[in-house]
Design a protein around this nucleic acid. Sequence first.
RNA 1: GGGUGCUUAGCUCAGCUGGUAGAGCGUCGCCCUUACAAGGCGAAGGUCGCAGGUUCGAGACCUGCAGCACCCACCA
Length: 919
Amino acid sequence: MDKTYSPRDIEERVYRYWEENGLFRPAADGPPFCIVIPPPNVTGTLHMGHAFQDTIMDALTRFHRMSGDRTLWQPGTDHAGIATQMVVERQLNAESRTRHELGRERFNERVWRWKEESGGTIARQMRRLGASVDWSRDRFTMDPGMSRAVQEAFIRLHADGLIYRGKRLVNWDPVLKTAVSDLEVQSEEEMGSLWHIRYPFADGKGHVTVATTRPETMLGDVAVAFHPDDERYSGLAGRKLALPLTGREIPLIADGFVDPAFGTGCVKLTPAHDFNDYEAGQRLKLPLINILTADARLNDEAPTPYRGLDRFEARRRIVSDLEAAGLLEKVEPHRLTIPRGDRSGAVVEPWLTDQWYVRIAPLAAPAIRAVEDGRIRFVPENWDKTYFEWMRNIKDWCISRQLWWGHRIPAWYGPDGSIHVGRSEAEVRARDGIAASVPLTQDEDVLDTWFSSALWPFSTLGWPDETQELQTFYPTSVLVTGFDIIFFWVARMIMMGLHCTGDVPFREVYVHGLIRDQDGQKMSKSKGNVIDPLDIVDGIALDDLVTKRTTGLMQPQLAPAIERATRKQYPEGIAAHGTDALRFTFASLATLSRDLRFDLGRVGGYRNFCNKLWNAARFVLMSTNSPLAHGPEELSAYDRWIRSRLHATIAAMREGLVQYRFDLAAQAVYEFTWYEFCDWYLEFSKTILQSAESTDAERRGTRRTLIETLEILLRLLHPLMPFITEEIWQRIGPRAGKSAGSIMVQPYPEAESAAVEPAIESDAKWTMSVILAMRGIRGEFDIAPSFQTPVYIENASDSDRRRFESTASAISRLAGISKVMWLPEGQKAPQSATASIGKMTIHVPMAGLIDVDAELARLGRRRSKVEQELARASGKLGNENFVRNAPAEVVAQERERVAGFKRELAQLAEQHERVASLR
RNA sequence: GGGUGCUUAGCUCAGCUGGUAGAGCGUCGCCCUUACAAGGCGAAGGUCGCAGGUUCGAGACCUGCAGCACCCACCA
């Protein structure tokens, strides 16, 4: 093995080996385990969120595959309707063309071409992360099979009366010129104005004043309303107002929905441009006057001077015209929530159009039940509250989009306006008896991307056909996703899954947090804080990173600030850390928290961890290199100790994986590897392997333990760090008697409770505390590591002696002891620095070594610490209630502690006196 | 207006059904000791947001308050 761990030399080669050997396909015949990937945008690139999520899914997949389950991680990508269409339109704009010049067919060809060009990127990136997805089953939401599933689902839902077409107000994005669903509207508080406008009575006598945030929509007003109990307006109901700028007469009405406390207590009603007013208008049977075009300009319903004006320009003109006419009473600053399209950022208009809807209540009810009765479990549990909250107030889902890129809606219209839903024009003609002479036109619209995403867990497995895969892997085992798409995706999959297949799409939903930057900020291009996960893997020079962050900005003026911040934060660029270190970081980050701060420093720490493991493996290989004749083996206390610790770690690791506590799993295995295996066991093993006194049987026992422990550890770590474990295992596995092959398909370690030996562990703990005490003294007095010191031991019990003698060579070596002298009772040691382990006291003679003042200071520090502990513990015991009520073992333990503290205080006092006398 | 989280060492976070406050990074000493300087050894650092309550015992449970974050919602 190379002296230095170098991930770049390992990772791509190892992945190729796995893929070429078909190791990602479901193979074992245990119980099925399946995860479907949340499909990323086909033309997108991998970001930190993906990398995090993929790490978790891959860890679960590898864990289950090694456990012998029939394991499938189903990959695929999403056509991402609006997002992808926008990208290609932007490309066209750069060529000074529009999609309308190309026409629908050629535009879609162009999108497909773009998909072919850029579609492989994310798959390549996933390979670099080590994702063990079954690439042979790769799916794309617009594949023929997927499209068939979408069409079939639409037709069935329609047949079941759960899809309908309706004309009503929708959220209209006037930039993208399409309807969007409620979820795609982001409402943000912004500063605006409240205009107070006078509406004169038609008879010219007086006026009422209306307060509005949207003066331009007054052109579509059909009434003004006040609350029936509002005395300011009593008796005015039924009178006519002359709508300013139009002269149109509208009624003044009284209605309970008005809040008299807001504004003037008078509200204008514009049913065609406001959701509230629409509802009121329906109830009061008021007419609808639409004054806007698809791109939010004023249409011909508006008086001539305003026609064709953009809505915001129209607002300015109308306000100034009102002012000129003396009808503008005042303008107040006002905070209000502005709805914007999440893709375009444009202010969304409520606009009257024909759209397709999913009747959602009948789908929501069983979906709520599935979570209530535990057929689907959220992890962490409390996300179900969020789910219920939304599902119980859910509204019909607008699924049609006025786009070109997506699944065309399978509906045809006859000249009489009749609607025919079916698989093809031929089918609907035949079914509905439409003569060839009657022209049919297919609906121009496409479906919301999330409609196809909602079918993903079963469409990828072959639905509507009853395929082998569907039977085996559906319902899938677990969905791994972020909480940001619980409504968009998770809820809709549950509803569609239950309706289309009769069963839940997955049994568990693991909801992870969102990766943010080190300051807790969301990572985004415009903030300039994005890190490409592969730049952490491979490293990137500062200039390249700056270029990456500052090109293609929507707001180029941000570039200098981004450059400055980047240069400040990464003066050296980003070093290469390797995939395994990044993955381990993600695992350790996967707490139950909602916001996960990504700190590059941690990746460095885990790269060091990889290096540690690498070097430990080198040591094990070197130590077991030379041939040793076969023969009996004898396990030392250390061998049994590390084995005991290993099996406790296996249990903790498995527990972490099963509970989705990847952070705890990572921590357990990290601590075992570094602190127990490397820091202690490898050092212990040297005392056996390198001591002339060891027998061959002991050497064989230790060598076996070294190999076996490392081999099991590699398997244990493999789900989190697949590359380095494979690379090392290829060398260690055979030595442990494993036949060749990949670590990927070796069994996952199981904890054997018999291997855990508390007595051995407590012996080892004693040994280590002796060594630690010695090191403490040596560290305190700067005793050179090369200097071996004699020690005197006072008050040793039989068990102390037994323990000491059985580990003497290790203690001597690791604590730097040249000679041990057991003091008979009553005999005092020379002046020395001391440390106590239980009743026993270790003396390190001070002659020439130890500074008197420093030792006194050290004793003083220790004394105050012990005094504090003693005060607390004896306070407890002084409390009768504690003694009476606490469990006996807790009380006994407390008594023992008090005795220990008292003993130590006495030892410290004595020691203090003796050292002080040296002055 | 409803809802959900969060507040523990300088920073980022663990702390399971209440029983001696932990880790990583950072900081400070001493060491190139043949697995590893991407390392070893040692050390410093916390009235667990605040105030009550339950309990023999609270970082954990209950109530209130404060601060922060997020989600949902039609107040013109």
